[in-house]
């Protein structure tokens, strides 16, 4: 597969390592009343869709960017690649 890195252009997927669902960005608040349940869901209750999937890839043998790659798990078509940092900020994460 080829991942079109937002900074570096098309790179072979062999340069990357894979983590999983991009919802791992949405780490819960540790001070919430039900923090244990929220963390449990965050860690274990994830979708495994046959189709479009937003997932985290790490450019380990490249510039060490974490990317959010939107990939169809049935066809491997990649429709979007974003810097995970930008995605995290857009989802309200900061310091």
């Amino acid at each position: 597969m080829i991942i079109n890195h937002p900074l570096l252009g098309p790179r072979d997927s062999q340069e990357f390592t894979y983590l999983g669902d991009a919802s791992l960005i949405d780490r819960p608040d540790w001070q919430a009343e039900d923090a244990v349940d929220r963390f449990y869901d965050y860690l274990y209750e994830r979708e495994n869709p046959a189709g479009e999937h937003r997932e985290l890839w790490f450019h380990e043998q490249g510039d060490r960017s974490w990317l959010v790659v939107t990939r169809n798990t049935l066809t491997h078509e990649i429709t979007n690649v974003e810097l995970a940092r930008d995605v995290a900020r857009a989802r309200g994460r900061g310091k």
């Binding site: 994460r93 900061g94 310091k95």
Partner: peptide, 18 residues
């Protein structure tokens, strides 16, 4: 290797503005 990867994940994906 895996600890470095994990630290980059935390830095970029969890607390991007640190």
């Amino acid at each position: 290797v895996s600890v470095y990867r994990h630290m980059e994940f935390c830095r970029q994906c969890l607390w991007p503005d640190l």
